[in-house]
Amino acid sequence: MNRLSDLGEFLRSRRAQLRPEQLGLVNYGRRRVPGLRREEVAQLAGVSAVYYTRLEQGVTDRASEAVLDAVARVLQLDEEERAHLYRLARGPRGDRKRPRRAEKLRPSVALMVESFAAATVPALVIGRTTDVLAWNRLAHALLAGHLDFDAPAGTANRPNIARMVFLDPHVRELYPDWKRKCRDTVDDLRMVAGQYQDDARLAELVGELTMKSPEFSALWNSHAVKPCANSVREFRHPEVGSLTLTNEMLVLPDDDGQRLAVFNAEPGSPSAAALDLLAGLYQRGVVAQPEKKQTHATR
């Protein structure tokens, strides 16, 4: 991933989504491409067309805060998109320029994840490149019972959420609205990529998914950004049927991009009963245990 190239592509993608009349401009003649022209963005932002063109072409990375604010205003960026623009324009923080090593999980975090199982709450820790660093038994049974439960303990074959969503047919069947899950996954991954622009493992993941999944490639090229902080998700589980669960993603402040994902059902609901049933099936060994072999969802 190239930061300045990503900056230009992001600006072009946002410019293409706007119509002249939305900004009070008169639309003269046919346009070769949809959306605003570069000259129109420059005019409305109060900068020269040459300067804005250089910014969009990735020739300069010295845009001032005032210029970035003006461009964000013209392109009608929301809060997440504005933060993404700043990250691409300014580059990664100095403390993120060191080589990336395999992520490690703090023992206390692993203990916290396992403790959720007593309350029938699926929980897992996801690394900055969407690797599963730990999951409790119920999260494993809910999301990927066909994979080895112990896979997150190593570094070579960890399950990867983005890879599972796009390349694992078992996981695809798990989500009735798979296309929405794909959009949410890519929007969040775009946000993470802006935060960790020099992460080679993240670049490798994006390259792999771009080559192997046309759906991922199309969504990635849309340059949409949105954090996956919370959601309500439908599941179609092979053992217990349909569930509706809330998913909260909590950032672990001392662990450089790691997040805790927790799933809950409305108390007394059919989904809560299904989670209880799934926990019981897993405890009794009724849920099929996975064959220990590598899949597309693991490295």
Rank of each mutant, 00 (worst) to 15 (best):
Q43Y: 06
A45V: 05
A45F: 03
V47Y: 00
V47L: 12
S48K: 12
A49T: 14
V50M: 14
V50E: 14
Y51N: 07
Y51S: 09
Y51V: 11
Y52T: 06
Y52V: 04
Y52P: 04
T53C: 11
T53K: 10
R54C: 10
L55A: 02
E56H: 08
E56G: 06
E56M: 12
Q57Y: 09
V59E: 14
V59G: 11
V59H: 14
T60I: 15
R62Q: 15
R62T: 15
E65W: 09
A66I: 09
A66Y: 10
A66R: 15
V67G: 05
V67W: 05
L68R: 11
D69H: 10
A70L: 08
A70V: 05
V71G: 00
V71D: 02
A72G: 15
A72Y: 00
R73S: 12
R73C: 03
R73G: 10
R73P: 00
R73Y: 04
V74M: 03
L75K: 06
Q76V: 08
L77E: 00
E79C: 01
E80T: 10
E80F: 07
R82G: 01
A83T: 03
R87E: 02
R90Y: 11
R90K: 15
G94T: 09
G94V: 12
R96N: 09
R96I: 01
R96H: 12
R96L: 13
R98D: 13
R98C: 08
P99E: 03
P99N: 09
P99M: 03
P99C: 02
P99G: 05
P99F: 03
P99T: 05
R100P: 02
R100S: 10
R101N: 12
R101P: 00
E103Y: 01
K104L: 15
L105C: 06
A110C: 06
L111N: 13
L111C: 10
M112Q: 12
M112F: 13
V113S: 01
E114D: 15
E114G: 08
S115L: 12
S115P: 14
S115A: 15
A117M: 07
A118N: 12
A118R: 15
A119M: 12
A119N: 14
T120N: 12
T120S: 12
P122E: 13
P122C: 11
P122L: 11
A123T: 04
A123V: 06
A123D: 02
L124M: 13
L124V: 05
V125M: 06
V125H: 02
V125L: 08
R128T: 08
R128K: 14
T129C: 15
T129N: 14
T130V: 03
T130R: 03
T130H: 06
L133C: 06
L133P: 00
L133T: 01
A134E: 09
A134D: 08
N136M: 08
L138H: 07
A139E: 04
